[in-house]
Simulated assay, not measured.
Amino acid sequence: MTTSDILDDTHVAALQHDLADVPAEATLVGVVRRPTGWFRSTIDENYPVPVLGSPADLFDEFKQRQEDFTIRGMCDEGAHNAAWDEVGFEDRY
C-alpha cells in the first residue's frame, strides 16, 4: 500500500494543535460546513460540503466546553484539548 491509498480524517483543530499524526507528504483536504479564512491557512484544498462537516450540535457543545475551560483559566491549547476529550469529539464525529 502506498500513502496515496490511505484516507484518514480528523478535525482541523487537531491539525492546528498538533494532535493528529499526519505524514509530511499528505495532502490536507478540508470538508466543512462553512469555510473561513483561517481554515484555508491550515489545509491544502478546501471543499465546502455542509453534510460532511461536523454536526452543528457537536461543534457547539465542543465550543461551549472550550469556553468554559478558558474561563476557568486554562490556556487556549489546554482548553481545546480538554473540551475535545470531554465531549468525545473524534468518536462522535
Rank of each mutant, 00 (worst) to 15 (best):
L19R: 14
V31T: 10
R92L: 02
A82M: 09
G73P: 04
D60P: 02
G37R: 07
T36L: 15
I71K: 11
L58D: 15
E86W: 07
M1H: 08
M1A: 11
F89V: 04
Q16I: 05
V12H: 10
L58H: 15
G30N: 01
V51H: 09
D91Y: 08
F62M: 09
H17K: 01
H80S: 14
Y93F: 04
T2W: 05
H80A: 14
H17R: 06
T3F: 07
T3Q: 10
V32H: 07
A26T: 15
T42L: 14
A56Q: 13
Q64P: 04
V29M: 03
V49P: 04
K63H: 10
A82L: 07
I71M: 06
W84C: 00
F39Y: 07
D18T: 11
D21C: 12
S54R: 00
G88D: 06
R72T: 14
L7H: 08
M74Y: 04
F62T: 05
Y47P: 02
V22N: 01
S41V: 01
I6G: 05
V31Y: 00
V87F: 08
V51S: 13
V12A: 13
E67T: 06
R72N: 08
A56V: 15
G88H: 07
F62E: 06
L28R: 15
D5R: 14
Q66A: 05
Q66P: 03
P50Y: 00
D60R: 13
T70L: 15
H80V: 08
M1N: 06
F39H: 06
L19W: 10
R40D: 13
D76A: 08
T2E: 08
E77P: 03
D44K: 05
Y93E: 03
T10S: 08
H80G: 13
L58K: 14
P23T: 11
N81P: 01
R34C: 03
V49N: 02
A24F: 10
V22F: 08
D44C: 12
L58Y: 13
G73T: 10
R34I: 00
V87G: 06
E77G: 10
V87W: 13
A24W: 06
H11E: 10
A14F: 07
V12P: 11
E77T: 08
A13G: 15
V32A: 09
E77N: 08
E86T: 12
G78M: 05
T36W: 14
G53E: 03
T70D: 03
D85W: 07
V29C: 04
T10M: 12
T3W: 13
E90Q: 08
L7R: 11
F62Y: 10
Q66D: 03
M74S: 05
H80C: 13
